[in-house]
Design a protein around this nucleic acid. Sequence first.
DNA 1: CTGTAAGCGAGACGGTACGTCAAGTCTTTAG
DNA 2: CTAAAGACTTGACGTACCGTCTCGCTTACAG
Lengths: 188, 188, 188, 188
Amino acid sequence: MPGRPYNPAHTEAARAAVFDLLEERGYEAISMEAVAERTGISKQALYRRWKHKRALIVDAFAEKADLLPDLPDTGNFERDLRALLRATFALLNGPCGVTNRALVAEALQDPEFLPELRERHLSRRRQQLRTVLERASRRGELKVPPDDTTVDLILGPVWYRLLLQNAPLDTSTADDFTDRLSRLLRGS
Amino acid sequence: MPGRPYNPAHTEAARAAVFDLLEERGYEAISMEAVAERTGISKQALYRRWKHKRALIVDAFAEKADLLPDLPDTGNFERDLRALLRATFALLNGPCGVTNRALVAEALQDPEFLPELRERHLSRRRQQLRTVLERASRRGELKVPPDDTTVDLILGPVWYRLLLQNAPLDTSTADDFTDRLSRLLRGS
Amino acid sequence: MPGRPYNPAHTEAARAAVFDLLEERGYEAISMEAVAERTGISKQALYRRWKHKRALIVDAFAEKADLLPDLPDTGNFERDLRALLRATFALLNGPCGVTNRALVAEALQDPEFLPELRERHLSRRRQQLRTVLERASRRGELKVPPDDTTVDLILGPVWYRLLLQNAPLDTSTADDFTDRLSRLLRGS
Amino acid sequence: MPGRPYNPAHTEAARAAVFDLLEERGYEAISMEAVAERTGISKQALYRRWKHKRALIVDAFAEKADLLPDLPDTGNFERDLRALLRATFALLNGPCGVTNRALVAEALQDPEFLPELRERHLSRRRQQLRTVLERASRRGELKVPPDDTTVDLILGPVWYRLLLQNAPLDTSTADDFTDRLSRLLRGS
DNA sequence: CTGTAAGCGAGACGGTACGTCAAGTCTTTAG
DNA sequence: CTAAAGACTTGACGTACCGTCTCGCTTACAG
């Protein structure tokens, strides 16, 4: 027997509130209490949907973080990679970057969340790059078939800069990365 | 007028307790309260030494995390790089890895801490790699002079794997990284 | 338009559940939530029948609490009183005592319920004693005609012990009360 | 080693707040939350002093409720008893009566509290009466030495009326009780 | 060899949030 | 209509940790 369904507006409002709080007052300001107050949803209703504060945070960010740039096939690996990196960097300079940093912070503190993050989120970014790589491989542009390490070598520096911010993620960096990495991977 | 000096045993005991808590019950279990109770040091004494919980955590981990592998000059870039990566991976598989993950967690939550972490800690790892690179450059082994991006391309994948644990940091990975990266960087 | 009638089994099941909860886990364990879960009746159905939690509790207990000992006329006041007190004490040592304590607890918290309790329940115990007293009075065994205060002087100590449990309600106490009270009331 | 002492003003303020809440908004309005807010004392500070909400309530009421009428020795049992009952009834018609009813309500709901209530509070009222009785006994005014049952027979009716309010606690009732009870107890 | 500045343990304090519970109401679907 | 299932608001519960603040005591250097 069915029972009253969740109010879907609430689910969405809570997710939005998490994001708003992050942007307005920083990661530490995110609290169930604050989400409840700001949205007018009772704590009880929140805890009915999400087991933890973390569960809400993760769920809230999952969507926003999953934004992926479009991937037109340019017919050339270097052009593809450049477009991908430029678009990625651009995204990561906005709220999407904040979100990704927050998600990793969460995962580092909560070991149970890390696998979930990998499966729900990181894997999609890896897959996107993989698609580009395999396309290039089929065209015969790559020395060797792409594998997980190939992906690590490309995405590693991106995450490194995003998380530890030792340098900006700007267009010229994207181009620099593209130049060096495509030389690494291209035949010759 | 001098007053009673800090008890140096306390300083050390607190740092140790932070580390113990991390290993025993995870990052979230680290609390001033717990450190105080476990060491018998009063909260007041802790706060006299460290401004924040974060300050204690950072200080506690700084030492452990700063372990750096030895760097004998083998006279050959690829051998140097292989040795460095192997040693680094080995270290990161132990408590040093746990610590580094915790430090990044801290930095992601506390924007003020990130620059400090970069200067006190990350920069040393970068510098160590830089030394290897410059040595190789002076020997004429590199196509182009090493710069910050060069370092990013090498350390990025290492941190990526350490933090997000999509794959292990084992010897064969070190060798794989070495092979691919040295090909990228070597002249030819 | 009459609609579907209440399921009388439910009404009874809820009353029983209240009583079970009281005996198993104490007064504080009685909750609508618990009654609903234990009986499989929905909260809504409970609230349709009883306005409040209190209304249910009161209704549930009313029956059980109304047990009154039998009152054979022995032809002698002291014997009548002794029989009455012994029987009453015996009853109050069982679930009937628990119930009466719960009813008073309820009455103390809900001023609206107190008059109802007095009229539906307490008055019957008073009336029973009154009958004994008046019988004795007609026999000429009492110094003065019995009135409300007479009843208070006899039942007061009984309730006092039942509620505040400073001493047990056992047979020897019943006899002790009988001896002293009959001396008070008998012409001497 | 001692540590910072409780702020005694807080202890007193919290007790007062409990009583204020009772008078202003009734028994159900008493909550730790409300006491904390009204006094400016943090919840933590309250819970440091009192294990439960109940513990606070009990403690708060114990003092106020412990108001006991003065007991001048008039040299005569009947006069002493009359004075005691009159004074007691007068007290119980004020806030002290409300409080005592609330305390019993609490005790009926929380079996663990009942013994505490008896020891901290009820026993003092019993002791006061006992003093009067023993004084009279030493003067040779009583048929038999007073015991616990004697106290029950006198206080029982008082509590009965206080709790179940079947009749008022006024001066003429006090006198009525005095007349009948002193006849019961006096020699002859 | 003594005063005084500071360390120290114990632990209270105001905050803020946590996650839980029950009360009583409302909504959906089924019969 | 009744009924179950279960979401909903409200409001309190008791706990945890933060960083600060006494309290009374104990060092240990400086005069």
